[in-house]
């Protein structure tokens, strides 16, 4: 148990580089929003947001170092949400 907890310890250096990446991605997404790509804009923005979210999850929230249980259940939750949004579109997209 104790050893496992030690393994969670992420060095300040790693955390700092994650923060730098997150800030860089923020700059990129703001820049990308200024370019007119039509319908693609929102998808680019969502893609960058998902990348940022994954970084926060993996490193700040330690998900990378957690057991399979948390990884799977988290994925299931996000998938459930995605499926629910998707199924709703069977209605709204065809009305």
């Amino acid at each position: 148990m104790n050893q496992k907890q030690q393994a969670h310890g992420i060095s300040y250096g790693t955390l700092l580089s994650v923060l730098t990446t997150l800030l860089a991605l923020t700059a990129i997404t703001v820049y990308a929003s200024q370019i007119d790509m039509g319908a693609l804009n929102i998808w680019v923005a969502l893609l960058i947001a998902s990348t940022k979210a994954s970084l926060v999850l993996m490193f700040f929230m330690h998900l990378r170092y957690e057991s399979g249980l948390l990884k799977y259940t988290f994925t299931i939750t996000v998938f459930t949400l995605a499926i629910i949004i998707g199924l709703t579109f069977w209605d709204v997209a065809f009305r």
């Binding site: 499926i83 199924l87 069977w90 209605d91 709204v92 997209a93 065809f94 009305r95």
Partner: peptide, 16 residues
């Protein structure tokens, strides 16, 4: 995943 079967007559799309 089946919630909308309560809504057949509520004006939802036929596809749904």
């Amino acid at each position: 995943l089946v919630w909308a079967h309560h809504m057949y007559t509520s004006g939802m799309s036929d596809t749904a």
